[in-house]
Structures are given as C-alpha cells and as structure tokens.
Amino acid sequence: MHSHELFHTLHQLSRHLTNKLNEVLKSFGLYGAQWAVIFVLKSKGSLTQKELCEYLFVEAPPMTRTIQRLVKQGYVKQVPGKDKREKHIQLTEEALNEYPKWEKAVTDHNQSLLKNFPDESQEQLFALQSAWLKNLL
C-alpha cells in the first residue's frame, strides 16, 4: 500500500466514523467533539483547556468553542486555577447524571461497528491502534 492510500483511507474512515457517532449523539444534543471532551473529563477528572487540547490533539479555537457549547448546555463548568489566566474544566452534576445514557449509546454503537469482526481481529485492531499512537507521541 502506498502511503497516500493509507492517509486517504484513514481520513475516509475517520470521517465516516465521526459522522456515525454524531448521528448516535444527536438525540442527546451532542456531537463527537463534545463527547470526546466529556469522556476525557470523566476518565481523567478536572483538566485545563490546554491539557484537553494536548490530550485530544485539538487546537485552542475549536476547543474553546466546544467548551463554550458544553458550558451553555450545563455539562461543564470552568473553575479558576491558581493562575488567573488558567481555568480548570470540570463536568457538572447534570453531566455526571446524564453520562451513563451517553456512554451506553456510544458503547452500543461501538459494538455494532465491530460485530462483524471476530474477537481476535478486534484485539489485533486495538493493539495496532495503541502501538501506532504510542509511536506518534
């Protein structure tokens, strides 16, 4: 496979998966980018916007818009840090209450995407993804 085919195929797959995830989350008033922030905050706790950007490989302007939408929806709050310029982003009680529904929808979607892959292939896929990501970091 030529490298341009790899990038093209990965881009197509990424776009398709993102669109499918957005369809699943639409009924909750969320998008994939918002889910990514919510998921990271749920698993890692309070983070600064800079830490979220670094972890999710997202530039500051789109992250700012995503956080602002989540604040407006009542799902995250910004808590001032030691440095006045620094704000920690945290999930609200409302988000924590809604999280199990969102997680179930995403988990069900993940399972439907993988249903035609044998367990061994799924394990190989996840191992390759993890190894590749580690090499990029």
Rank of each mutant, 00 (worst) to 15 (best):
M1F: 15
S3N: 12
H4Q: 13
H4N: 15
E5S: 07
L6E: 11
L6P: 00
F7L: 13
T9C: 06
L10S: 08
R15H: 15
H16Q: 11
K20E: 14
K20P: 01
L21W: 01
N22D: 07
F28I: 01
F28H: 01
G29F: 05
Y31I: 03
Y31N: 11
Y31F: 15
A33C: 14
Q34P: 03
W35F: 05
A36T: 11
A36H: 03
A36K: 08
I38H: 11
F39M: 14
S43Y: 03
K44N: 12
K44S: 15
G45N: 06
S46A: 10
L47T: 06
L47M: 07
L47R: 01
L47F: 07
E51R: 05
L52P: 00
E54I: 15
E54N: 11
Y55M: 03
L56Q: 01
L56K: 05
V58T: 02
E59Q: 15
P61T: 12
P61A: 11
P61G: 12
P62L: 03
M63P: 01
M63R: 05
T64A: 05
I67F: 04
Q68Y: 02
Q68G: 04
Q68R: 09
L70G: 07
V71S: 04
K72C: 06
K72E: 04
K72W: 03
Q73K: 05
V79D: 11
V79S: 11
G81A: 02
K82I: 14
D83F: 06
D83N: 08
D83M: 07
R85F: 04
K87P: 01
H88P: 01
I89G: 00
Q90V: 10
L91Y: 04
L91Q: 01
T92Q: 06
E93I: 08
E94Y: 13
L96W: 02
E98F: 13
P100L: 08
P100E: 04
K101S: 10
K101H: 14
W102I: 01
A105G: 06
V106T: 08
T107C: 12
T107D: 08
H109I: 02
Q111A: 09
S112C: 09
L113D: 04
K115E: 05
F117C: 06
F117W: 11
F117G: 07
P118K: 07
D119R: 13
E120L: 07
S121Q: 14
Q122R: 13
Q122E: 11
L125N: 02
A127R: 13
L128I: 15
Q129H: 03
S130T: 10
A131V: 15
L133C: 08
K134Y: 12
N135D: 03
L136A: 12
L136T: 08
